[in-house]
């Protein structure tokens, strides 16, 4: 999996490419958690090139969301493929992770 991190003003935009699974979720955790620890509170995860997610990926996202919640932070997903979205749906995570169609919509939602 490729992870691309961009920071525009105070918004972190993290784009994932490939598979987010037990083999790769640790790499995402290493980017996300330190950024939250440094008091960053706005995160957009661009899933346009994410082909696959397993419970190991959900685990990292849930951990990050829990941590962010303590600081009233926001984590928004965008451009999520239907198969990946279905995993969120089965796991009951759609009410927890807002999903936007594209990064622009996610950015305006996060600044609300």
């Amino acid at each position: 999996m490729q992870i691309n991190v961009e920071k525009i003003e105070d918004i972190y935009i993290i784009s994932l490419e490939g598979n987010l699974d037990s083999n790769t979720s640790g790499a995402l955790e290493k980017k996300l958690i330190p950024a939250i620890d440094q008091n960053n509170t706005k995160f957009i995860l661009d899933f346009s090139k994410l082909r696959y997610i397993s419970s190991a990926g959900l685990r990292v996202l849930l951990g990050a969301a829990k941590k962010l919640n303590q600081f009233r932070g926001k984590l928004i997903l965008c451009s999520v493929k239907s198969d990946v979205k279905e995993v969120f749906e089965i796991a009951g995570l759609l009410p927890i992770f807002p999903i936007c169609d594209d990064p622009e919509t996610a950015a305006s939602k996060i600044l609300d």
Partner: peptide, 10 residues
């Protein structure tokens, strides 16, 4: 929410 336990459920 518990962080784990979703794998078998999926």
């Amino acid at each position: 929410r518990k962080i784990g336990g979703l794998g078998i459920y999926l």
